[in-house]
Design a protein around this nucleic acid. Structure first.
Lengths: 217, 217
DNA sequence: TGACAGCACGAACGATCGTTCTATTTTTGA
DNA sequence: TCAAAAATAGAACGATCGTTCGTGCTGTCA
């Protein structure tokens, strides 16, 4: 083993390469949320970032690597800016509500220019085998798993009735949110989000134990 | 005006051109449900149908016309093979259930190779202005409008409670169905459809008037 | 039988795709 | 400060994209 003074895996000051790579991926996420990961062309991405095709390409080595990096960047951005902040809400029903509310805000405020990145990309890749599809599928599993876990916590705390099925509820909330995102993207009608919020609220009311309190959606 | 003996607009015996056009569109719907309407390449479609690129192209004149024709063919196929048959159920709650059940079957049995054609295409085009997007948006509006009308009929017949909101219910059922389709396409897990059916059933039970009967989903 | 649509084909176009080179500039670290 | 390393640019590749053009089939009526 070399001495402990070796340069760290993640340098304290990000090099220039890392910075431009981040700028590229920021643009890539936006473009992909609109045109998909296949419509995300290296040429158009180069124009959008003001770089040359080859200079940009060198950062990734292949289009598939660019796609994978874009998905991972979107996952990180989602975790950091949507999911983790919402987790600060108090455990149980309130936290579940906070996470769903954060997701709906994330989609409605269009953190990515084309709405939810994963809604666009998961539909695009669900029929094409390969590592990109696998990664996207894993992200979606993750998200649903988180929703399921939060619902289960609320149930374990007695805030949801014994008849509540965490997996079932997670599926429903996921579907309602995605549906609102899709409807809004297609028709630019904000009522879609209002209807999703109402549906989630009523569904939670159906299963919430008497006296359980949940934060507004 | 020429004499009334002119050939009818729709000839009794479809000419050869019409037949191959139908064959092309059948393949086009399947390919587009998997790879999208942009991934639907004229070259790949020519290979799939055993035609030459130029011979196939001549039927449409442009890729956009091919896309429009494919969407209209999918709309017609959906109407003919899913929606209209389900409308034969008795008016009211039963008919609403029959239509939703038909849709879920249509998606689960993969009438198109990539699942619901419109689920794939509407997400793909929701961010790209143009006639294709407009047509797809109109199809989705149509579908949601039909669901809304069926729910309103059930309500007017007294089978759904006074508190039931047809538009809201239509949104929810649409979202749940689309969500099941997406989850199934991504994870190949049939439980997605089971959860959608359960959600629709429970939601209907919440709003159904006492004693109202609805057919199984 | 012969003229004439309708239909399909093959070859080719310019544009753009992802990708590979080589050269040049910029940044980094001793 | 200077050489090594990293980052970017430019030109070009073969493949494929949508599209155009000219040609040859193949039936149908006169």
């Amino acid at each position: 083993m070399p001495s402990s003074s070796a340069s760290p895996a993640i340098p304290l000051t990000p090099g220039k390469g890392i910075l431009t790579r981040q700028a590229i991926l920021q643009e890539a996420m936006d473009l992909a949320s609109v045109n998909g990961l296949e419509g995300l062309t290296i040429g158009s991405l180069a124009v959008a970032t003001g770089m040359s095709k080859s200079g940009l390409f060198a950062h990734f080595g292949s289009k598939e690597e660019l796609q994978l990096a874009t998905v991972q960047a979107a996952r990180a951005a989602f975790q950091e800016r949507v999911f983790l902040p919402a987790l600060k809400a108090p455990r149980g029903l309130k936290r579940l509500c906070a996470v769903i509310a954060a997701w709906l805000d994330y989609a409605e405020r269009e953190m990515f220019r084309g709405g939810c990145f994963f809604a666009a990309v998961s539909v695009e890749f669900d029929g094409r085998p390969g590592p990109v599809r696998d990664l996207v599928a894993a992200c979606m599993m993750d998200w649903r798993g988180s929703l399921t876990r939060l619902a289960r916590e609320a149930k374990d705390m007695g805030e949801l009735s014994r008849g509540a099925d965490p997996e079932q509820l997670a599926f429903e909330f996921d579907a309602l949110s995605m549906g609102a995102n899709g409807t809004y993207q297609l028709h630019r009608d904000h009522r879609a989000f209002a209807m999703a919020r109402r549906a989630v609220k009523e569904r939670l009311k159906t299963f919430s134990a008497p006296g359980a309190r949940f934060s507004p959606l």
